Amino acid sequence: MRKEQRVKKNSEFQEVFKKGTSIANRQFVVYRLKKEEQKFFRIGLSVSKKIGNAVVRNQVKRYIRQVFLELKDDVKDQYDYVIIARKPAADMDFHDVKKSLIHVLKKSKVLDSKQHAQFDKRK
């Protein structure tokens, strides 16, 4: 992700929390806020110290960024997204993180639901 594709400032996070909508599953909470003047989407990540040590937190953030990189053509533009990782995310590998994020993004109607059907199959 390029720098201009990230939500970095506290004021930007607060705006998404206050004006945006949220949807969640057990592992992630996704806040979204439509920005008409924006040509691309931006993501902000919040991974609490409750998740684990710095190594674990950074790994979770890398996984989330990689998922958005792989889904960049399918995720709706003109939105700011803030992803909050919950405790179960610490024990997940990349494929589990991807499956969970696809699920929550489809629930929030920002991802094309016809694609990524292979992740809908439950065990």
Rank of each mutant, 00 (worst) to 15 (best):
A89L: 07
I83Q: 03
K35M: 08
I43T: 03
S46R: 04
Y81K: 02
D77W: 10
G44D: 03
R86G: 06
K35Q: 07
K50M: 13
S46K: 07
R86M: 06
Q59Y: 13
I51V: 15
R86H: 12
Q38V: 07
P88L: 03
V56C: 11
V82Y: 06
D74C: 06
L71P: 06
D73N: 14
I51Y: 10
K72V: 10
K35G: 01
V47I: 06
I84F: 00
G52S: 07
D80M: 03
R62E: 07
L71M: 13
V60A: 05
Y63A: 02
Y81H: 04
K87S: 08
I84K: 00
I51H: 09
L45Y: 04
K39W: 07
N53C: 09
I43D: 09
F41N: 01
K87M: 03
G52Y: 06
K35C: 05
D74Q: 10
D91E: 15
K87V: 02
Y63K: 05
L45A: 03
L71C: 11
K87A: 04
N58V: 00
K61N: 04
F41M: 04
K76P: 05
I51D: 09
R57G: 06
Q38K: 15
N53H: 11
L69Y: 14
K49T: 15
I83W: 02
V67Y: 00
R42H: 04
V55I: 14
Q38M: 15
A89E: 01
L71I: 08
